[in-house]
Write a protein that binds this DNA or RNA. Structure first.
Lengths: 230, 230
DNA sequence: TACATTTGTTATGTAGTACATAAGTACTAT
DNA sequence: ATAGTACTTATGTACTACATAACAAATGTA
């Protein structure tokens, strides 16, 4: 009972299996040789022999790297190093139902942080057309205000903001986080709207300063900020 | 030449291999049965038989899920579902040398966004001690201002900010992104310091408003913002 | 000579068997 | 009743065999 912190300083003893080791070794190999995408890798049997393990083990390790997009394999041509898609690996794990409560909370906060910080990129890159699009989206939402539409609109509007930021990775990141927000919001007793509407935000973006916009965004998200736990 | 966008609308034809399919099926299985961490899974041979594939294939798929921390296996006891550590999967892929140029740029911008948005959490959770610690760090840096120390100090100071935010996931996320920033900054012709120093920021945090702090952070990061490409 | 077809080679993909190992479980002896 | 032993079982590793796709070379035809 002396330690109520779930993570003690004693790192978990992880029974390293051969595939684990081989995966690590392969990673080191790739890094050390500073191979570039497109460069060929030794074939499986050679790797197996060099490492002194069965092809089975090598294949398990390669299968992992393949999943992460670090290597691509083609029959006969062998394997080549590839640009991993950093988000696809993330995506596989992002399932609200298997993520711990604390992490869910952290990710929800992450969204708030992102949206507050996004103003910089938005103001650096917004165009007249972007603003017009955003206003259209906000206006469209005035009509169909209730029911399942709300969530869809929420996504469309905020998604557009990320799009304006001109950062594809960020945009995709947001898309992936959506199920999490959805999940967290659903667990809230009721949906509380901020004082600043989507249309207000769009207008701020058109005529207001960066600071104005950020203040508006804060008000818009205020119900969530108010729920922050210390 | 009609399409200068590297990603065309034609989704890449991904030759699905059996492990890919089995991995997917297992994921669906876990989600659909809404299994909770600790719940046991069928044994490998049963899975193989149910799916009509060899145990080899099942093991490759399981190996992937194991790597992501979604399942844990113990000899004889079988396999159980586990809370995946969402960041560890990310970590494996985050190597500047194999990430594409565009993604690197995106991630660098992500950091800027995070630090600008962080003010909310920081002001919601900062304590007197936090501010004092931060000032100490900033002061310590006044002395050893040159050479390799700069990077280390930079990390220590900004790391403390994330710590104050009280969001573990965010903090770890930042830690993982460090090599990327380092890499990107190194490719810049020279290091340009902002007008607002670390000590200034610490003082703002102590006495200034949230808006003051954010303005200070903007000035601190301004050299980077100025380099933003449209 | 130029081009289409066939054949061969090679590296990955999948299946199947065998055995090692660790961790429960049941049984036995004192 | 408890300690110790033997048994059972599910994962971990190795090995073999063959299917398949892709490239290369050789062959045949105009």
């Amino acid at each position: 009972m002396a330690d109520k912190n779930p993570k003690s300083d004693l790192g978990k003893i992880v029974q390293q299996t051969m595939p684990d080791i081989v995966e690590m070794r392969l990673r080191e190999y790739l890094k050390q040789k500073s191979l570039k995408p497109g460069d060929p890798l030794p074939k499986e049997v050679d790797l197996a022999e060099s490492l002194g393990v069965s092809r089975n083990v090598v294949r398990e390790a390669l299968s992992r790297l393949r999943m992460l997009g670090m290597v691509e394999t083609k029959k006969k041509r062998g394997m080549v190093l590839a640009h991993p898609d950093i988000l696809s690996s993330f995506e596989r794990v992002l399932d609200p139902s298997i993520i711990g409560e604390n992490t869910l909370k952290d990710i929800f906060e992450l969204r708030l942080v992102l949206e507050m910080g996004l103003a910089e990129l938005i103001y650096a890159r917004k165009t007249k057309k972007d603003v017009e699009d955003l206003k259209q989206i906000a206006l469209k939402q005035m009509d169909e205000k209730k029911g399942a539409f709300r969530v869809k609109n929420e996504i469309e509007f905020h998604g557009k903001l990320y799009e304006i930021s001109g950062n594809d990775t960020l945009k995709r990141f947001q898309q992936m986080l959506l199920p999490i927000f959805d999940y967290v919001v659903k667990t809230e007793p009721r949906f509380i709207s901020g004082k600043v509407s989507h249309l207000d935000l769009a207008n701020l973006l058109e005529k207001g300063s960066k600071e104005d916009f950020r203040r508006g965004m804060y008000e818009h998200l205020k119900p969530h900020f108010d729920r922050l736990k210390r």
